[in-house]
Measured scan of single mutants.
Amino acid sequence: KFNKELSVAGREIVTLPNLNDPQKKAFIFSLWDDPSQSANLLAEAKKLNDAQAPK
């Protein structure tokens, strides 16, 4: 279960257009550290992506 959630969340995070590479890497490392938090980490990444969207 975690492997699928981890890969789905990881793929989504790397495609978020408004995150820079260090931010993406930080989220990916957090996913590896605790795969059970993949849904929460993906939600946080999406929030940050939205907040950094060009206005």
Results as ranks from 00 to 15, higher is better:
L16D: 01
L6R: 04
S38K: 06
V8Y: 10
D33P: 00
E12S: 08
N20E: 06
L6Y: 03
V14H: 07
Q52W: 04
N3E: 14
A45P: 02
K47V: 07
K4I: 10
S38Y: 13
F27P: 11
Q52C: 10
N40A: 13
N3H: 12
I28Q: 03
V14T: 08
K25R: 10
Q37P: 02
V8K: 13
K25M: 14
Q52T: 03
S7Y: 14
D21Q: 07
E5D: 10
E5Y: 06
S30Y: 09
D33M: 10
V14Y: 08
L48W: 04
S36M: 07
K46S: 04
K24W: 03
N3C: 15
L16V: 01
E12I: 14
F2D: 10
W32N: 06
K55R: 12
D21R: 05
S38E: 12
L42C: 04
P35R: 00
A39T: 08
N18P: 00
Q37R: 06
A43K: 09
K4Q: 12
D21K: 08
F27L: 06
E12T: 09
N20G: 05
V14W: 12
V14F: 09
N18W: 14
P22V: 15
Q52S: 04
Q37T: 06
S30W: 13
E12D: 06
S36H: 05
V8E: 12
T15Q: 13
L19N: 01
P17W: 00
A26W: 13
L42A: 03
P35G: 03
K24A: 00
K4C: 15
A51D: 09
R11K: 09
N40M: 12
P54M: 07
P35L: 03
L19E: 00
K24F: 02
A43Y: 08
E44M: 09
P22A: 14
S30R: 15
S38N: 07
S30A: 14
T15L: 14
A53S: 11
S36R: 05
N40C: 13
K25F: 12
N3L: 13
P17N: 05
K46H: 11
D50A: 11
E5K: 06
K47W: 07
N18M: 03
S36L: 07
K24S: 00
E44A: 10
W32K: 02
S36K: 08
N3F: 14
E44Q: 09
K4S: 13
S7T: 13
L31T: 04
L41N: 01
N20S: 15
L31I: 09
L41K: 03
K4Y: 12
L31M: 09
Q37S: 06
L16E: 01
N40Q: 13
A39W: 05
D50L: 07
R11N: 08
P17K: 07
Q23T: 05
N20C: 11
P22N: 15
P22M: 15
K46Q: 08
F29M: 14
S36V: 05
K25T: 10
F27A: 00
S7W: 15
L19R: 00
A9K: 05
I28T: 01
V14K: 07
P22E: 15
I28Y: 03
A53G: 09
Q37G: 05
D34M: 03
A39H: 13
E44T: 06
F2H: 12
A9G: 03
S36N: 07
S30L: 15
K46P: 01
V8M: 11
L31Y: 02
W32M: 11
D50M: 09
A51R: 10
R11F: 12
A26E: 14
D50R: 07
P17S: 05
F29E: 15
T15P: 01
F2V: 13
L48K: 04
K4P: 14
I28L: 13
N18G: 01
S7D: 09
D34H: 04
D33Q: 13
D21E: 12
L31V: 04
A39Y: 05
A53V: 07
E12N: 06
A43Q: 10
A45E: 01
